[in-house]
Simulated assay, not measured.
Amino acid sequence: MTKFLAPAALLALGALALTGCTDNNATASADGSIAVSASDDACTLATGTAAGGTLKFSVKNEGTKVNEFYLLAEDGLRIVGEVENIGPGVTRDLVVMAPEGSYFAACKPGMVGDGIRSPFTVTAAAAGQEVSADRAALQQTAADQYASYVKDQSQQLLAGTEDFAAAFAAGEEAEAKQLYPQVRMHWERIEPVAESFGDLDPILDAREADLEEGQEFTGWHRAEKDLWAPKGYTKMSQAQRQQIADGLVKHTTELVTRAQALEFTPDKLANGAKELLDEVATGKVTGEEEAFSHTDLWDFQANLEGAKIAYEDLAPLLEGTDDELDAQLKENFEKLQAQLDAYRVGEGFKYYDQLGTEQVQELAAGVDALSEPLSRLTAAVVK
Score class of each variant (00 low, 15 high):
residue 267 D to M: 03
residue 217 F to N: 10
residue 323 D to N: 15
residue 127 A to Y: 05
residue 192 P to S: 11
residue 54 T to M: 02
residue 337 Q to F: 07
residue 52 G to L: 03
residue 98 A to N: 04
residue 197 F to M: 07
residue 57 F to Y: 15
residue 121 T to R: 15
residue 198 G to V: 03
residue 64 T to Y: 10
residue 279 E to K: 09
residue 326 D to P: 06
residue 336 L to M: 10
residue 59 V to F: 00
residue 24 N to A: 15
residue 68 E to I: 02
residue 265 T to C: 08
residue 61 N to I: 05
residue 303 N to D: 11
residue 304 L to T: 02
residue 12 A to K: 13
residue 1 M to L: 15
residue 162 E to I: 15
residue 303 N to E: 03
residue 49 T to C: 02
residue 269 L to A: 07
residue 242 Q to L: 10
residue 262 L to E: 07
residue 45 L to M: 12
residue 13 L to R: 13
residue 100 E to G: 12
residue 21 C to K: 08
residue 153 Q to G: 05
residue 307 A to W: 04
residue 372 E to P: 06
residue 85 N to W: 05
residue 365 A to D: 13
residue 345 V to A: 05
residue 26 A to Y: 01
residue 22 T to V: 14
residue 139 Q to A: 11
residue 168 F to Y: 15
residue 17 A to F: 07
residue 363 L to D: 01
residue 301 Q to D: 15
residue 270 A to N: 05
residue 131 V to F: 00
residue 361 Q to K: 14
residue 45 L to G: 09
residue 157 L to P: 02
residue 68 E to S: 15
residue 67 N to W: 02
residue 342 A to G: 15
residue 307 A to S: 14
residue 65 K to H: 11
residue 226 D to G: 10
residue 174 A to R: 09
residue 273 A to K: 01
residue 107 C to Q: 03
residue 302 A to Q: 02
residue 10 L to S: 13
residue 157 L to H: 06
residue 148 S to H: 06
residue 297 L to I: 07
residue 207 R to I: 05
residue 275 E to P: 01
residue 128 G to I: 02
residue 36 V to E: 00
residue 157 L to N: 04
residue 356 G to A: 05
residue 209 A to N: 09
residue 367 V to S: 01
residue 108 K to C: 07
residue 62 E to T: 14
residue 174 A to W: 01
residue 381 V to W: 00
residue 296 D to Y: 00
residue 235 K to N: 15
residue 362 E to T: 13
residue 323 D to F: 08
residue 173 E to C: 01
residue 123 T to H: 07
